[in-house]
């Protein structure tokens, strides 16, 4: 029997990659949905231009007898959606409408939702790694974090009303790798990186290919539950900035929101308060539950994913190659000066 999978948010990179990989299976019929035409190749997947906030989506679902819905149409930055209110509309209201539409569909039996690490918030009272059962120490109150929490609440509501449906929520870590366009990658690629003074955030990444692999795994198999998906290791922000070869400026913590606002005005980067907290205190996820349930092992470590991004971006002002010259002269000076050599 051919499975019919509806994928939302296929116009963006990760959605397109996922739809393409899923459609490579001959017995899976993939319908990609988004409000804008796809910018990336969708392969065998069909594209339907529809807005998930419009009840017409219900007709698409019933007409094609969709059995699995993969919801990936989340917008992480207000810039990408045309303002914070429009972003919230797409994330929260979009999810509500989509879930309302699928709840009635007779053929519907599986839901996969892409959530994010931002549901855990970030604060100095956080444990080193969050497991799925832990609640945030400080509830995210703004931006994408709050949206993600609300999306997960609606998803849990649907799971309660339709106990026959397999519901999987994947909390993905910050995506990192060549060609990834996100707040974090734009921030790291700034010519001079402002960093909150006296803090060094721990960062955990996920390579897009691993994200797609994890989503494919839970779409093909039934793995109900909420799971953290991330590479196992951590890098610290200062280390990431060094690898990028960017000079950095220390910003006192009290001035960080002001600096973020200035950068937003200048359209350089787009940070909400919860993202500033994450880049101040750092956060990590424990991925043991997902690997136990599915045997999934990410192919890229955080360091490898970062290294791939570094290699694909232009070298910074203080790149290791440029500093090598200075180091070399210090070295020659030392060998002359000290007989110890």
């Amino acid at each position: 029997m051919t499975r019919v999978v509806l994928v939302t948010g296929v116009s963006r990179d990760l959605g397109a990659r996922f739809a393409r990989s899923l459609a490579a299976d001959a017995d899976v019929d993939v319908i990609g949905v988004d409000v804008t035409p796809p910018r990336f190749d969708l392969g065998r997947a069909r594209f339907v231009r529809a807005d998930i906030r419009n009840p017409v989506i219900a007709k698409v679902i019933t007409a094609s007898a969709v059995d699995t819905v993969v919801h990936m149409a989340m917008v992480a930055t207000p810039g990408g959606a045309g303002g914070r209110s429009s972003m919230k509309e797409m994330n929260v209201i979009g999810t509500m409408q989509l879930l309302a539409a699928v709840q009635k569909a007779p053929s519907f039996r599986k839901l996969v939702v892409q959530s994010s690490v931002s549901v855990y918030g970030a604060s100095p009272r956080d444990p080193a790694k969050f497991t799925e059962d832990m609640s945030p120490r400080v509830q995210p109150r703004t931006g994408f974090g709050k949206d993600s929490v609300e999306i997960e609440t609606y998803v849990r509501g649907l799971a309660r009303r339709r106990p026959d449906v397999v519901v999987t929520t994947l909390r993905l870590a910050t995506l990192m790798g060549a060609g990834v366009e996100s707040t974090t990658t734009r921030y790291l690629a700034l010519p001079v990186v402002p960093r909150v003074l006296g803090f060094d955030a721990r960062l955990q990444f996920l390579h897009p290919s691993d994200a797609v692999a994890a989503l494919l795994l839970v779409t093909r198999r039934d793995v109900p539950g909420t799971f953290n998906v991330a590479a196992d290791d951590m890098v610290v922000l200062s280390q990431a900035v060094r690898q990028m070869g960017r000079p950095e400026i220390g910003v006192p913590q009290s001035l960080a929101p002001l600096v973020a606002a200035t950068f937003r005005q200048a359209r350089l980067s787009d940070f909400s308060a919860d993202q500033i907290d994450a880049l101040t205190y750092g956060r990590g996820m424990d991925t043991a539950r997902f690997s136990e349930a599915t045997g999934f092992v990410p192919t890229y470590s955080s360091r490898a994913a970062l290294a791939e991004f570094v290699a694909s971006s232009s070298p910074g002002l203080l790149s290791p190659e440029r500093l090598e010259g200075a180091l070399h002269s210090v070295e020659s000076l030392l060998t002359v000066r000290t007989p110890r050599g």
Binding site: A128, D200, R202, R242, L327
Partner: peptide, 22 residues
């Protein structure tokens, strides 16, 4: 001093590992 310089190089390149707790 070679060792120190090697250490300085790895720091400049950000080429070192931290554990889950930083």
């Amino acid at each position: 001093w070679e060792e120190t310089l090697a250490f300085a190089r790895s720091r400049i390149a950000g080429d070192y590992a931290v554990d889950d707790f930083g």
